[in-house]
């Protein structure tokens, strides 16, 4: 009896020496049978910091940006040449002035922003004001060192705009709310939600070919004339710097 006990004890100890190897083998077998490719996952996890992840993405996006800028420059050159051929108002060789916003009331009775450049810098009433994203409004009042800009959302703002896809004109009227109303001149408008609205390419009052907004909704059943709601691209709530396009 005693000897058999002793034998068993020895046998257990014998296996205990290979405990780790046995554990490894059994787990490998388990992996093999469940067909989980855990090694690739672990490899991916371990080498994640070594891989060219975000940096490479940045390089690519940088490249894309430079390509787009180059394309834009080429197109602007082309546009300028074609405009000269058509003897239209030149958009690209106009002088631009950058100014800081010193006061802004984008909502309320007066929807306006005030900038720190005025008539001594060459700003005149009616100049177009551009923020990041597109047209913001027009200069309404000028003092020697400041200018008051009426935003497109203001209820007394009305400008002629152009739908590039359908090549038609419309009138953009501010309503005081975030979305101005676009009034069509045609009885049956072909514009759809998602269409871009820009200033007219042949415009003389406003700087031509500036993006203004995107159509959100078209009401074709409206009684006097059909209209659309336009979401503006430039947001006056968060703009600190604007550009004024001089005539």
């Amino acid at each position: 009896m005693g000897s058999s006990l002793r034998f068993n004890y020895f046998r257990w100890r014998y296996f205990r020496r290979f405990k780790l190897i046995l554990f490894l083998a059994s787990s490998l077998i388990l992996i093999r049978f469940t067909k989980t490719s855990i090694f690739i996952d672990i490899y991916a996890l371990l080498t994640k910091p070594l891989l060219p992840g975000s940096a490479q993405k940045e390089w690519i996006s940088n490249g894309v940006r430079i390509e787009q800028q180059a394309k834009l420059i080429l197109l602007e050159e082309d546009n300028k040449r074609l405009r000269e051929l058509l003897s239209l108002q030149k958009s690209s060789n106009k002088k631009k002035i950058t100014a800081a916003v010193i006061s802004r009331t984008p909502s309320g009775w007066w929807q306006q922003i005030i900038i720190n450049k005025g008539s001594i810098h060459g700003i005149k009433i009616g100049n177009s004001v551009v923020g990041p994203g597109g047209l913001l409004g027009r200069v309404q009042k000028v003092t020697p060192t400041t200018a008051i800009i009426q935003l497109l959302t203001s209820p007394n703002s009305r400008i002629g705009v152009w739908a590039p896809r359908t090549k038609r004109h419309g009138l953009l009227i501010g309503l005081g709310t975030n979305r101005p109303r676009l009034i069509f001149f045609e009885r049956e408008p072909k514009e759809k939600p998602g269409d871009l609205i820009s200033t007219s390419p042949a415009s003389t009052l406003i700087a031509p070919n500036l993006p203004v907004g995107i159509i959100q909704l078209v009401n074709k059943q409206a009684m006097p004339s059909p209209y659309a709601s336009v979401q503006l691209i430039a947001a006056p709530h968060a703009i600190d710097w604007v550009q004024i396009k001089l005539k």
Binding site: I173, L175, G176, P224
Partner: peptide
Amino acid sequence: KYQEQELDSLLQWGWNN
């Protein structure tokens, strides 16, 4: 002065302000 044609369109703006 400015919106003689569309009186209804300025309702929301006016009430809100």
